[in-house]
Design a binder for these strands. Structure first.
Lengths: 114, 114
DNA sequence: CTTGTATTTAACCATATTGTTATTTAACTC
DNA sequence: GAGTTAAATAACAATATGGTTAAATACAAG
């Protein structure tokens, strides 16, 4: 697990998620990516830079254009953190839920007091 | 899918991920959560507020203390976006990789030109 | 009703983020 | 070389974020 800060920060912006969704359909040039968005080119360029630095995409020059491509490796890292804790979460939730059903007083805490 | 901005923004901070990891082991009071961190109480309190607003945790008062608990629903939302695109990403990657192997020129673009 | 404890809220500061417009860079075309 | 196109970078402003310390709130215990 690495680079999670940058990856999740990158995913926090709806424009960037839309760009990733777009790239999921296939590589695209910067111009093609920018086209549907109401913001300036430089703004798109910086979103792409953020995505690149988070290792969620790669950019490679092809003559005058830059082609952007998803980087599944980077996306996997972001997923792994959530995946790792998913079992814990549901597990903890179920355990607590169960416990609550048996002890209807508020907020039982499974940790023992020191 | 909803609230993804707030959820991913919340996940982008390592302190907040550590708090979630801690809560995966069971509910905890604010004091218990704060204990291992070298930052001030108010800083923790605000991290908790961010997590709560992102619907990743809930806070409920129990006498003087506040007990924090994971909210698996919120976490699921964050995961679903990534899950939804996982197939696309790996699929697109494989397709492109395949394509590149057959056409060794750089960066083929599967979209047709308008 | 005063004191102590747990936590939040307020006020403030430094830095980061996201947008803008203007300028620069790189490559292709004549 | 001059112009055009695609995109990046620079410089700037507004807002958001994450930390601090000091003050406020809420409850519990004398």
């Amino acid at each position: 697990m690495k680079n999670l800060d940058a990856a999740y920060a990158a995913l926090a912006d709806p424009t960037r998620r839309a760009i990733l969704a777009r790239l999921a359909l296939g590589d695209a040039t910067v111009g093609e990516i920018a086209e549907p968005f109401p913001i300036s080119g430089p703004a798109i360029s910086r979103h792409l830079k953020v995505l690149e630095e988070a290792q969620l995409i790669t950019r490679t020059r092809r003559s005058q254009q830059f082609v952007c491509r998803l980087n599944p490796e980077g996306l996997k890292s972001a997923q792994e953190w959530l995946d790792y804790y998913r079992a814990f979460w549901t597990g903890a939730f179920d355990r607590l839920d169960e416990h609550l059903k048996r002890n209807p007083q508020l907020s039982p805490n499974p940790k023992e007091k020191k």
